[in-house]
Simulated scan of single mutants.
Amino acid sequence: MRKVMTGTQLAVRLLLELASLVALAIGGYGVWADGPVVLRGLIALALPTLAVVLWGRYAAPRRPVRDSAVLWYGVQLLVWGGAVTLLAVGGHPGWAVGLGIVMVVNTVVLWSLGEWSPAIER
Rank of each mutant, 00 (worst) to 15 (best):
A59M: 03
L16R: 01
M103K: 05
L71H: 09
V38Y: 07
A96M: 06
E121T: 15
V108C: 04
L71M: 12
G81P: 08
Q9V: 12
A33M: 06
V104I: 15
V109G: 03
I101N: 08
V70S: 13
A19M: 08
E121V: 14
L110C: 11
I26Q: 04
I101R: 05
L42I: 08
Q9I: 09
P61D: 11
G91E: 10
L113G: 06
A96G: 05
Q76F: 12
W32I: 13
P36D: 13
P61S: 14
T107Y: 13
G114T: 10
G90E: 08
S112G: 03
T85D: 00
R2K: 10
L18G: 10
S117V: 02
V84S: 13
N106I: 07
V104Y: 07
L15R: 04
D67Y: 03
V37C: 00
A69E: 13
G100Y: 07
A69G: 12
A46E: 02
V108K: 02
L18A: 15
E121N: 13
W95G: 15
Q76D: 14
S112K: 12
V109D: 02
S68D: 00
V79R: 10
A59D: 00
G81V: 09
L86Q: 10
H92E: 10
N106D: 15
G98A: 11
G28P: 04
A33H: 08
I26C: 01
G27F: 02
T6V: 15
A88H: 04
M1G: 15
V75M: 05
V12T: 07
I43C: 11
G30P: 01
L110Y: 09
P36K: 07
G56R: 11
E17W: 13
G7W: 00
V105C: 07
M5E: 13
L71S: 11
G35K: 03
G28N: 07
A25C: 05
L78C: 07
I120Q: 10
A60S: 14
V79C: 09
L77M: 10
G28E: 07
T49P: 04
G100S: 07
A11V: 11
G41W: 09
W32F: 13
L77T: 12
V97A: 12
K3V: 11
W95M: 12
I43S: 10
V108M: 04
V4A: 15
L113K: 08
W95H: 06
L113N: 08
M1F: 14
N106V: 09
W32Y: 08
L113Q: 14
V12Y: 01
V79P: 09
L99Y: 13
R13D: 14
L14K: 09
A25P: 01
M5R: 11
W116F: 15
V38N: 01
G7E: 02
L47K: 03
I120V: 13
V109C: 01
A23R: 05
